[in-house]
Design a protein around this nucleic acid. Structure first.
Lengths: 224, 224
DNA sequence: ATAATCAATATTGGATCCAAAATATGGAGC
DNA sequence: GCTCCATATTTTGGATCCAATATTGATTAT
């Protein structure tokens, strides 16, 4: 009578805290530059500081927070140079991921990407910006995963994470949302034709636009 | 009595343990697949398990160890596919780093690389394989750092870390050591001429040779 | 003998307490 | 008013203890 399926275990406290912290950062509840008050957060999540600190070490490795000995953790504040650098690195890695992905592209995979795109459009129609950003991410990760290069995909995912706090700046603007939808449609079309290089170009153009748009929103406010 | 220079602070226990663990893994004292016994290691390093666990979380992020809840950490065992993937990613990132580096190359920078190369050759002459591997690393990182892309360099460094445990397989062979020296000389020559693309090619050839050599040692039985 | 079960042991996960360091506070001197 | 310094408070770093989980070994039934 044992349910044979994979024995879902309750998450450990550090796994729970890790997820919560990630959400708090990517949704902007903890904002770039904010110091992390361990005691307060531990109390909020109802855990001790030990699992919290381990989760923070993980986030440090992912570049979402910075750490200095005896001074603790801060939510990573990306300078414009940092932001450009992350997008440059993404460029290098995602281009290769796409090339490999197209080589291994199957009809089933294409159908999966189309489902992800449907979710993007649904979220956009519903005006759910957060859900749209998440669906967008699923759309791209789905494609990258066809590459069958798990470490490469993991790296790319980490890079996306590290700029998640700024992504809402992009998705907050209606023209940008529209643009994403059109680019996804173009991408799907090019994928059907197995035209890897064209997909690479579309994605590159998108990243260039995104980084420009984010820069534009970032520079007027933070001239300190 | 006042040494005004930069206030060297004694490292925290977790920083100390992090370094020690890294060395233990890269020198092969802890071998791929070995489980990490926290209690024993903590006693050996004369710290409690808390800073040890934080150091392990860092190493997990760098890919040197793996972690499973309630089962602890293991030294990462790289499959051949993993190894090839890491070298592929390095290819993508290091090529860009070199191109940017050459754009910003100064005479002072070149002199620094030449000093690093001198250390490589000194270590090789002294038969100090470990020191040669470290000097080799300094040689390459010196070049990459000219790129003024700190995140990119950090990523590359992490990738080097993740295969350090296998690097001794390569440096253990005399012909490989000789080859490294010759390639470094060629690289320095091409750097003086600001020929980025040629450097990229030399480094690519080197990585290809390295991964082949490591593969050969890793799967000696499977030749039929 | 083998397989399943349950107890004993080893190992990790987490909470609490204390120490060390940094930051904030307040006062003395100029 | 300002700077400098000593002190108090806050915050992080680390050790120890206990709980939860996994692993091992013995026992029993088949």
């Amino acid at each position: 009578m044992t349910s044979v399926e994979g024995h879902r275990r309750p998450p450990t406290a550090q796994q729970f805290v890790l997820e919560e912290l990630r959400r708090a950062i990517t949704t902007g509840r903890l904002r770039p530059g904010d110091p992390i008050r361990q005691e307060a957060l531990a109390e909020e999540f109802d855990v001790s500081r030990v699992p919290l600190r381990e989760a923070l070490k993980t986030l440090e490795g992912e570049g979402l927070v910075t750490y200095k000995a005896h001074r603790g953790y801060c939510v990573q504040r990306l300078s414009l140079d940092d932001l450009r650098e992350v997008y440059l690195i993404r460029e290098l890695l995602e281009a290769e991921a796409v090339r490999r992905a197209v080589e291994r592209l199957t009809d089933a995979g294409l159908a999966e990407a189309e489902r992800a795109q449907a979710e993007v459009e649904r979220a956009a129609a519903a005006g759910d910006v957060l859900e749209m950003a998440e669906a967008n991410r699923r759309f791209h990760m789905t494609i990258f995963e066809w590459s069958e290069l798990p470490r490469l995909v993991r790296l790319i995912r980490t890079l996306w994470d590290s700029t998640d706090a700024y992504r809402s700046l992009y998705y907050g603007e209606e023209p940008n949302r529209q643009r994403v939808i059109e680019e996804h449609r173009a991408t799907l079309d090019l994928l059907r034709r197995r035209d890897a290089e064209a997909v690479v170009l579309v994605l590159a153009a998108h990243r260039a636009h995104a980084v420009t748009a984010i820069e534009a929103q970032l520079s007027p406010g933070t001239a300190g």
